[in-house]
Amino acid sequence: MITRDEFRQIAANGTWKQNSSLIQLLGLCPLLAVTTNLVNGVMLSLATIIVMSIAGLAVASLRNLIPHEVRIPVFILIVAALVTVVDLLFNAGLHELYLVLGIFIPLIVTNCIVLARVEAFANKNPPLQAMFDGIFMGVGMLWTLALLGGLRELIGSGTLFSGIDMVFPGLHPLQLLPKDYPGLLLAILPPGAFILLGCLIAWKNWVEARAASRDNRQVPEPAVTGSGH
């Protein structure tokens, strides 16, 4: 079983405190390459969440049966099997999106986020905790990629949800800026991704610094008592 405090700590670590994209800076290859729009970032993140949660559950359940010397190859085999299933499901059900995401779905096997959490957490904790850790680490990746992809798409082309018709046929992207908006090509290119990622990291650090400063002001100063003569 998992306690409420454990659940809250795992959720907070995955989504904010140990955010894989903004704190650990893992998985930067898909982070920078796929987030040309919001839909691509969200869908790759969902695929990663599925792999991370099931891989964490499987490794935590089998950790006492896996010899320590061969644990890394076994972890990779487990992750590779799950990625293969996800890859085939995307190819069968979302073929157009599958072609857009290309090699980045199979590359989840080598994504440092997945292997790092399997080794650092799932290999040392019970199955339920490991599964939730995988889910919330993926959620942290999801909101980061969604925000980065949304910003790049909006600045680059003035739209949001470009490519949503590949997931939900019949839906169309939102044109938030005027149709004659020329777009900023830099935002869609890799240098724009680096710049916006740096801005997101700076924003997160600012939020945490402001919260820490507020907490420090709320801590009462100890009373000073003088000694009488």
Rank of each mutant, 00 (worst) to 15 (best):
Q18N: 09
N19R: 06
S20F: 10
S21T: 15
L22Y: 06
Q24P: 06
L25E: 12
L25R: 11
L26M: 05
G27Q: 02
L28K: 03
C29H: 14
L31W: 04
L32A: 15
L32C: 10
A33C: 13
T36M: 13
T36G: 13
L38M: 15
V39W: 08
G41N: 13
M43Q: 04
M43Y: 07
M43P: 00
S45L: 14
L46V: 15
L46I: 15
A47S: 14
A47Y: 08
V51R: 02
V51I: 13
M52K: 02
I54N: 00
A55D: 08
A55R: 03
A55E: 00
A55P: 02
G56H: 02
L57M: 04
V59E: 04
V59Q: 13
A60I: 00
A60G: 09
A60M: 06
L62S: 09
L62I: 08
L65G: 08
L65C: 00
L65S: 14
I66F: 11
I66G: 00
P67G: 02
P67I: 15
H68I: 12
E69T: 03
R71T: 07
R71C: 04
I72H: 04
I72V: 15
I72S: 01
P73Y: 09
P73A: 10
P73I: 12
V74N: 00
V74R: 01
F75C: 00
F75Q: 01
I76S: 01
L77N: 00
L77Y: 04
V79S: 01
A81F: 06
A81G: 10
L82T: 02
T84L: 05
T84I: 06
T84P: 00
V85N: 04
D87K: 03
D87Y: 10
L88R: 14
A92P: 01
G93T: 03
G93M: 05
L94Q: 07
E96M: 12
E96I: 07
E96Y: 12
E96L: 14
Y98W: 12
L99N: 15
L99T: 14
L99E: 12
G102H: 14
I103C: 06
F104E: 03
L107P: 01
I108G: 04
V109L: 03
V109I: 15
T110Q: 08
T110V: 14
N111T: 10
N111H: 03
C112A: 15
I113G: 04
V118M: 10
E119Y: 13
A120C: 05
F121C: 09
A122Q: 09
A122K: 01
K124S: 04
